[in-house]
Write a protein that binds this DNA or RNA. Structure first.
Lengths: 197, 197
DNA sequence: CAGGGAGGTTAGCGGTCGTTAACCTGAAGG
DNA sequence: CCTTCAGGTTAACGACCGCTAACCTCCCTG
């Protein structure tokens, strides 16, 4: 994946600000005028870029779920011959990167799903389910003593743990990104390990 | 604490249904007419019991934070001469009970805080902060190798783990309340243990 | 240098929502 | 038997919000 150096498009600006505002005040708590103001245009101006407010949320949520799943699949594909522990570590690392770098999206991800149109919601749920199942498989190869339902519960719980980043204080006040990432990583592994017996 | 056997008051009915609806669709996503309908009266009828929609949310959030803190303080007070590990287990158990029995409230608790009036929000945050600090102290007696900021981050993360109950499937589909509670408990302990080194 | 599309603007419509006003009713109390 | 009041009702108001309509203004291109 090439690193982006060019300026973000207007669409991307809007999505980013919309994500931040939705995360802060909830989907229904933010007006289109505010989203517009956040990128320097007026409310109705947004309709040159999106079909409506719903479409912004849909694109955000589908994007998040897709990115998470794609990233996980890539990590799995690159893990040929690597011990399963390392694969799990890679999954954890990827999720932590996402949770630390895109906190508003992580917040939206499990908060505003029900505001989507039926078709979009089904799509997002499907992507999320695939992501979870992928984790479950890897977790069960590392911790074979876990039953499948138990492993699934454990995965959801670890997601809760990793997604707690928005509660860890403002980005500046953290003890350093690397330190936090390592802490979360260790805790996730510890939680999985303890899930067994 | 005596077990309630008498019928819930109308106020309590309203709060319970409002909590469920707020958790499902967000504070702004629920109309007063819906809340009224959920208890068999019409929207404006609610104003015989509450000053407004905001007041319902405030009472819910203050109630949650207060209950959590009070319960934790009680558990700490009862723990005279008990080994610190057992105190931590008691805290974890209390939080899990809450997370399993009052899922809508757990959901609201970290989701709709920003919709409160300034004074209410400050109160809730203060209660939450006390609750966290109480955990941090206990955690640090059990795991002295943890620095204070690290312990606080770990506590927040474990809250994320324990509060994942709403994602674990509908109440019926769980592998049994006791089993789930034990799993969460083990994972929480495992996460704390791994937070050290 | 015409012209056309991309990307803005403001005005305003239609619907929804929280809240209030005004009224009703059944049960308790003197 | 009359009064009172708790706890409802419906109607309606005012504010807000998502979205459309109509218009404007660059900038690119043939």
């Amino acid at each position: 994946m090439a690193t982006r150096t060019d300026a973000p498009t207007r669409r991307e600006q809007i999505l980013k600000e919309a994500a931040r505002l939705f995360a802060e005040r909830g989907f229904h708590g933010v007006g289109v005028d505010e989203i517009g103001a956040a990128v320097g245009i007026s409310g109705p101006g947004l309709y040159r870029h999106f079909a409506g407010k719903d479409a912004m949320l849909a694109e955000l949520l589908v994007g998040i779920s897709g990115q998470l799943l794609t990233g996980a699949k890539r990590r799995l594909a690159e893990a040929d011959g690597v011990p399963p522990e390392a694969v799990l570590d890679s999954l954890i690392e990827g999720h932590i990167d996402f949770a630390l770098d895109d906190r508003p999206l992580i917040t939206l991800h499990d908060r505003e799903l029900d505001r989507l149109r039926d078709s979009d919601r089904k799509l997002v749920r499907q992507l999320q389910r695939q992501y979870v199942e992928l984790w479950v498989e890897v977790v069960r190869t590392v911790y074979p003593e876990l039953s499948e339902p138990t492993a699934r519960s454990a995965v959801h719980s670890v997601f809760g743990l990793l997604n707690s980043t928005p509660h860890l204080g403002r980005p500046g006040s953290l003890p350093g990104r690397g330190v936090t990432a390592e802490l979360l990583h260790r805790m996730a592994r510890g939680a999985f390990g303890a899930a067994g017996g």
